[in-house]
C-alpha cells in the first residue's frame, strides 16, 4: 500500500472513532489484497509507511465481497463494479480479505 494512502488512513483513524470506519479494498489480486488488508489491520509489513507497527484493526472488505455487493444499489454495481467481478478472481480476493478480517 502506498505511503500516502497509509498516511490518509492513519489520519482518518486519529480523527474518527475506529468503530465508524470501514476500509474498502480494490486490490486486483489476492497477493496485493493480502498486503493491503494486513497493512490496515495489523500494520505495514514492509515497515516503510505510516502504518508500520500500527495495529489499527480496522474493519476491512474487498469491494467484490458479497456483503459489499448487497449494500450497493444494483445500477451502481453494474456501472462501476460488475464487470470487474468477471475480470478479477472475486472468490480468491474475498477469501483472502475475509480470512484476515476474521483473524483480526
Amino acid at each position: 500500500m502506498d505511503l500516502q494512502t497509509q498516511e490518509a488512513i492513519l489520519r482518518a483513524s486519529q480523527t474518527h472513532d475506529k468503530a465508524d470506519l470501514l476500509v474498502l479494498l480494490g486490490s486486483p489480486d489476492p497477493e496485493s489484497a493480502e498486503i493491503a488488508a494486513e497493512t490496515v489491520i495489523v500494520g505495514d509489513p514492509s515497515y516503510a509507511g505510516a502504518l508500520a507497527g500500527a495495529q489499527l484493526g480496522l474493519l476491512t472488505y474487498h469491494v467484490l465481497e458479497d456483503e459489499v455487493h448487497a449494500d450497493v444499489p444494483d445500477d451502481v454495481w453494474e456501472a462501476q463494479i460488475g464487470v470487474m467481478a468477471d475480470v478479477l478472481e472475486a472468490d480468491a480476493l474475498s477469501a483472502t480479505v475475509a480470512g484476515f478480517r476474521n483473524q483480526a
Partner: peptide, 15 residues
C-alpha cells in the same frame, strides 16, 4: 504486488 496488468486488461475487454 501490481499483478498481471495485460491479463487484467484483456479480461476486462473480454468481460
Amino acid at each position: 504486488g501490481s499483478g498481471n496488468v495485460p491479463e487484467r486488461n484483456y479480461r476486462t475487454i473480454a468481460a
